[in-house]
Amino acid sequence: MTPNETQNELRDQLSQSQAEADAVASLLASHKSRRDASIDSATMSMSTRVHHALTQQTVSRPRFGFVPVASALSLATAAVVLFLSFGPTERPLTHAADTLVDARVDVSSAPSDVDGLADELVRRNSAGSDAWTITEADVDRLLGEVDLEL
């Protein structure tokens, strides 16, 4: 498809009078032209960004940061720790200490879990699997350890 073919087809679809078709086609053509220029500008440095990211992991702005979520998980961990330490059930001190270690949530793994899930999704698709989209189970995989409901 060329831009001219697209414009010609658009005109064919416009069965109004010639003047009306001219007006609509002209407005849409200008709009598309501005949009194309905007896309050209936005993607101008994309090759550099991708190659840079491939060699240096990432150059995108830190928008997907999971630090706040990790903080929330830390709070949940602290609550579990406090409950296990000072809860109503009496346990030997050694048992309590072991439980603390077992109960701790590794919050530092949260970002890699997200990336791991995303990578898995791409693998699923490249393998031709139908189960492509992110499921609630996938989200549960991220949040399930602390039993959070969205």
């Binding site: 936005a42 994309m46 960004r49 491939l54 150059v59 702005r61 990578d119 791409v122 490249s126």
Partner: peptide
């Protein structure tokens, strides 16, 4: 900016997994 970040991420993932593109 969101679209730029998504584009970068998509192209990065495609680059990483293109060997396994079926």
């Amino acid at each position: 900016e969101d679209a730029q970040d998504i584009t970068q991420e998509v192209l990065l993932r495609a680059a990483r997994f293109i060997d396994g593109f079926g």
